[in-house]
Design a protein around this nucleic acid. Structure first.
Lengths: 233, 233
DNA sequence: GCACTCGAAATTGCATGCAACTCGGGTAGA
DNA sequence: TCTACCCGAGTTGCATGCAATTTCGAGTGC
C-alpha cells in the first residue's frame, strides 16, 4: 500500500513513521532508535534522521539533542489544550465557510451530511469515521484559507487516535450526526456566528466524550488510547 | 552573536537561516544551495540538509524533492491568507485571554499597554515594534493554550517583515495604540466577544495598511518588503 | 530560425565511517 | 551502606564519498 507514496526515502519514512504513531503502533514515549528504524525499513540512518527532524517540527516526535528521539508524550493537560485549539480553529473555519463557501461547496457539504445520516443509522462506525474526516475536510476547504486548513488538518491528525475510539460508543454516532446537522444548517444559511458556535459545541462534546473514555481506561492517557494495538502492516 | 544559541550545529543553522529569511537577507525565491550554505557556515552538507528539512516543515522554505530548496515564495494571495489566519488566531487568543487571564496577567498587560502609549507619543517606532511583540505575546500567553500560542507566534514571525514596515508610516503608531486600547479594555473587563472583535479589527487594519505599503512599492510582494535591506545584526 | 535530442556538469539523495557525547554498571572511598 | 567517581558500551552528530537525477548547453534535423 505504499506504492510510490513519497518520492524520496525520507518522505516515505516520515509518512510511515507518522502513520505508525498516529495509529498507535508506536506508543507515545517509546524511543525511536535511529539504527533500529533504519534496519526496520532497510535504509541507512541518514534518511531516518531527516524524517525524524521533520516529524519533530510538526510535533509528533520529540527530538532531544544528543539524547535521541521519542514519540511525543501527550499528557492529559496537553490533550486538553489540543482539543481546545482544534475546537477553536474548526469553529473559525466553520465561520469563514459560512461566509465564503460557493453554492457548489454548500451543496456537496449538504449531500455528504445526508449520506452520513445513513451510515449513522446503519451503525457503521468505521465508514462513518472515514466520512467524518471528509466532512470536516470539506469545511476546512470551504474556509478558503490554506494556512488555517493545514493547521486544522494537522491537529485533527494528531488527535485521530483519541477521536476514533469514541465513535464506537453506542449513541455517539447519532449524536455526532445531529451536531453536524446544526453546523451544516448554519453554514448553508450563511449564519457565521451560529456556525462558529455549533462547531465549537460539537468538538467540545467530542472532547468530553474522549475524556470519559480515557478516565474509564484508568489514566492510560500517556500510553495512548490503544489498549495494546500493535502495528498492522 | 551566536553564543551557544543552539546546542547542535543543525539547530544553530536552522535558527540562522530562519533569521536570514525573516530579516530579508535571503530574498524569497532564492535558491538555497546546500554546498554553498555549508561553505558559508563552515560545516558539511549533512547538518544543512537537516536544517532545511526542518524549515521546510515550518513553511519558511520550500523543499522540492531532487530539485533543491528555495526560500518560500509568498504570493499576494498567500500573504492575504496568512494575515487572515493570524487575525483569526489572534482574535481567538484574545477571546480566551479575556476569559482566563489571571489578575496578575491582566495588570501586566495593562501596564505594558500604558508604557507603549509613551513610546507611541515619542514616535519611537523601533522600541514600539519590540514592545508590540511583547504585547501580543502576553495575549497569546494569557490564552493559556500552548498549541494556539505557538501557532500564533509562528505566524507572527513569518509576517514580521511585512508588519514592521508599516510602523514607520506616520500616524500608524497612534492608531495602533488606540486599537490596542480597545483590545485591552475588553480583556480587562472579561468581555470575550468584544475582545475577539477588537483584535480581529486591529489585525485586519494592520493588513490593509501593509497592503497599501506593498501596492505603493509597485507589486514587489514576491521579493519581500525590503527594498534592498540586508542583515543588520 | 526554431525545436528537439543528447551528453556532461552540477546537485541532490543516501550510505558509510569516525569522533563526541550520554548513560549504565561497577568499584573505591567515606 | 551510601556516595562519588570512573570507565566502557551504545547512540547521536557530523564529515565524506558515491550513485542517481536534474539541468543546462551544444549540436543536429526540420
Amino acid at each position: 500500500m505504499d506504492e510510490a507514496a513519497g518520492r524520496t526515502r525520507t518522505e516515505r519514512l516520515a509518512a510511515e513513521i507518522a502513520e505508525a504513531i498516529v495509529t498507535g503502533a508506536l506508543a507515545p514515549g517509546s524511543r525511536l532508535d535511529e539504527q533500529a528504524l533504519a534496519d526496520r525499513f532497510g535504509v541507512s540512518r541518514t534518511p531516518v534522521r531527516e524524517a525524524l527532524r521533520q516529524l519533530g517540527t510538526s510535533g509528533l516526535v520529540e527530538v532531544r539533542p544528543r539524547r535521541g528521539a521519542v514519540v511525543a508524550q501527550v499528557t492529559a493537560d496537553q490533550l486538553a489544550e489540543l482539543f481546545v485549539a482544534m475546537a477553536e480553529v474548526e469553529a473559525t473555519c466553520a465561520r469563514l465557510a459560512a461566509q465564503s463557501m460557493s453554492p457548489l461547496e454548500r451543496r456537496r457539504l449538504d449531500a455528504l451530511h445526508e449520506a452520513m445520516g445513513g451510515l449513522a443509522r446503519a451503525g457503521d462506525w468505521a465508514a462513518y469515521a472515514r466520512a467524518n474526516t471528509a466532512f470536516h475536510g470539506a469545511i476546512y476547504a470551504g474556509a478558503h484559507n490554506s494556512v488555517l486548513s493545514d493547521f486544522a488538518s494537522s491537529l485533527r491528525r494528531r488527535l485521530q487516535p483519541y477521536r476514533e475510539a469514541q465513535f464506537r460508543l453506542s449513541g455517539r454516532l447519532a449524536l455526532s450526526h445531529a451536531e453536524h446537522g446544526a453546523v451544516v444548517a448554519a453554514i448553508l444559511a450563511g449564519q457565521a456566528a451560529e456556525a462558529h458556535a455549533a462547531m465549537l459545541r460539537h468538538v467540545t462534546l467530542v472532547e468530553s466524550s474522549v475524556e470519559g473514555l480515557l478516565a474509564g481506561e484508568g489514566g492510560a492517557v500517556a500510553s495512548g488510547p490503544h489498549g495494546g494495538a500493535r502495528q498492522s502492516t
